[in-house]
Design a protein around this nucleic acid. Structure first.
Lengths: 167, 167
DNA sequence: TATTGTTATACTCTATAACTATA
DNA sequence: TATAGTTATAGAGTATAACAATA
């Protein structure tokens, strides 16, 4: 007898933040070994991935796209630069820290993509390629929806009293 | 002139782990203030939420459902118990740490739910209630799919060489 | 002997404020 | 004056191994 009441799991599974977290945890578990084996952390990998699809990006854009706070990004820049995976790019606005992938960075990126491709294909096959596409669209649209809500909502109708976190 | 190349964002948005992360970040931003204002962290909140829908749960089940590692859960138990929000429950298997919500814990849970309800409704209205439901189903099914893949996949066809993380 | 959970430890990320430099 | 990024700092989560207690 296992004391795991499976009662009323439905409501729990209907929680959006939790469902997102658990799904992410599952997919991360699937792909993280490939990232680990190249001594990369997940945030570092997101930065490489974002840079792989753009000439160069500045810290602010990367922070937003990769969901990394500026202080973390500063450390990641330092680390990836030391490893020769990214390099700074001159920018007309001297305040901006623009970076790009080096050749070594691009090689590493493509290596990881290649290695993880079979797992991705097996997932797409098991889940259904079209459903995966639907899911991705819904996820991106959800994000847009929340952003629009924030943009169009007067401050006063936002949460009660935004206190400092973790305290 | 803003130096944010919007080129080829499509591929980046097609990355499943990243799309999940960014969507979660957006929805978390929406609901976290309500959690913060009651001096709860998100993991603590997940534990309360999971317990709100079950008589009592043991640490292992909570760790799995809430995506929290056992050492973190131990700390969270200690904190929530000190605050009188959860209490230990006797279990026939003395190895298991079973906990339940106290009355105070349930009151707090319902308070948070009530306060965040308007935001949830606005999100459901803006995104579409049915699409939200579709999204939740897809997320839960994705998780199941990954789990099945892991269960049915021979160890040997798994990633190349699972080295220790962060090193 | 296997399972459950706690402790110990190191590292990373999260989050905020304060500061510097540039526009 | 506003913006971009870094530094500083505190705190929490992540992850692993080792240990204790129970089954």
């Amino acid at each position: 007898m296992v004391p795991h009441p499976k009662t009323s799991l439905r409501k729990f599974e209907k929680s959006l933040p939790i469902a997102l977290l658990r799904s992410r945890e599952a997919t991360t578990r699937l792909f993280k070994p490939f990232i680990d084996s190249h001594d990369l952390t997940m945030p570092q990998w997101r930065v490489l991935r974002a840079l792989a699809e753009a000439e160069a990006l500045d810290a602010k854009t990367l922070a937003e796209r990769c969901v990394i706070l500026p202080p973390s990004l500063t450390r990641i820049f330092r680390c990836l630069t030391q490893r020769g995976l990214i390099a700074q790019v001159d920018c007309t606005d001297a305040r901006r820290h623009m970076v790009r992938l080096t050749d070594a960075g691009r090689r590493l990126f493509e290596e990881v993509v290649e290695e993880s491709e079979p797992s991705y294909r097996r997932l797409a096959a098991a889940f259904g390629a079209e459903r995966l596409d639907t899911l991705l669209d819904l996820l991106n649209e959800l994000r847009d929806t929340v952003q629009n809500m924030e943009d169009t909502t007067p401050e006063t109708s936002l949460p009660p009293l935004k206190r400092a976190a973790n305290h």
